[in-house]
Design a protein around this nucleic acid. Structure first.
Lengths: 193, 193
DNA sequence: GATAATAGGTACCGGTCGGTAACATCGTCA
DNA sequence: TGACGATGTTACCGACCGGTACCTATTATC
């Protein structure tokens, strides 16, 4: 039971993040969430209008965390976009091949809710577009001939790792992502980019 | 209502394939499937032991179709693995950016059922491993220095298209997949590979 | 025409889902 | 001390879930 001393809303968020990511949002019931959080159902519905609203909040939080980690890596490589990208790729490969990895929580929710009007999907699109923009910016920073194409190629590799990691595990295709990313970068900017 | 003249089992498969792919397996109930197929619930349970068994059958069928289409493209490019791969990538880009595309039905089911023991997940792993093997074989056929790494890099690009296509649509990263694949191939085997 | 398999019709089961109403309790701060 | 907002307790709702029992109608085969 996570965060015994915290407020009910925060404990609900912690429980939802953990259970939603592990089992999927449709597989987890609100009863299970409140039991895991150590609160009661009315407390959940005092902080969130519906289960869908809680899912949207989960997606938003997930996206904020993801972009924060990305930005931290970039900030650790000032003036070295190539090093930043390769470090990002190394992190992606490591995390997506770890046992029990379930890929990207945002993508998973997006797959569970095809309806474009679903609030969680709107939050998902915002986060993914932000990531796409950052990859293009880095592509431009290292002088790529077509920064958009390079950023999108890298984005495909990342999404591929997230999707295939949870099926293939440590011996999966994600182990090759850093080499593939380097090839894409070199093709656009040369090995010295 | 698809296939009025067909046997009940086949109509159930057709309905399940369409509804499962469109809305996801957890979102579609057996009642909805039999109604769409124009049959009744006992007919479904005479052909399938459970809903899970129907989902596993759906995944298996999906994988067979996927590999058949892949093999057709390869067969249309005898002695030209590079051309085969680029054609595959063009098809992937086209299909994953089409409106209403919902990515890979196998991946979607895999995300909905994290349990490694779920029958649908076992079927999913078989299909994806087969695809991975074919990509490696093509990598070896065009003389790549590291066929496994090339095949896995291409696999990541494909999975990335399938994941991001349903969120970004026609203007998404999948539009760059063919160029990215060419860069990966050239880095391993040179433009003449 | 008899038989057996396959199909549909209907009604039903227990369980779980998301969500709510009404009321009791606690801690905090004035 | 008193009041208030946040929380817990209990019970409940209608709807839907996957799955089944029982019986009848069709269809093909011999």
């Amino acid at each position: 039971m996570p965060g015994r001393g915290k407020r009910a809303a925060e404990r609900i968020c912690d429980a939802a993040r953990e259970l939603f990511y592990r089992d999927g949002t449709r597989a987890v019931g609100v009863e299970q969430i409140v039991a895991y959080a150590g609160v009661t159902k009315p407390s959940l519905y005092r902080s969130f209008a519906s289960k869908d609203a809680l899912i949207a909040h989960y997606v938003t939080e997930f996206g904020v965390d993801m972009l924060r980690r990305f930005d931290e890596v970039v900030a650790a490589h000032p003036g070295d976009p190539r090093g930043a990208l390769l470090t990002v790729m190394a992190h992606v490969a490591e995390q997506t091949t770890a046992p029990g990895c379930r890929g990207c929580g945002i993508t998973n929710v997006m797959i569970e809710y095809p309806d474009p009007a679903h609030p969680a999907r709107i939050a998902a699109e915002a986060s993914k577009s932000a990531l796409r923009g950052r990859l293009r910016d880095l592509g431009a920073a290292l002088g790529a001939r077509d920064p958009a194409a390079l950023g999108d190629g890298l984005m495909l590799l990342i999404e591929g790792c997230l999707a295939s990691g949870q099926l293939f595990g440590p011996g999966g295709p994600a182990a090759s992502v850093q080499a593939a990313a380097a090839a894409l970068i070199d093709a656009q900017a040369g090995p010295g980019g």
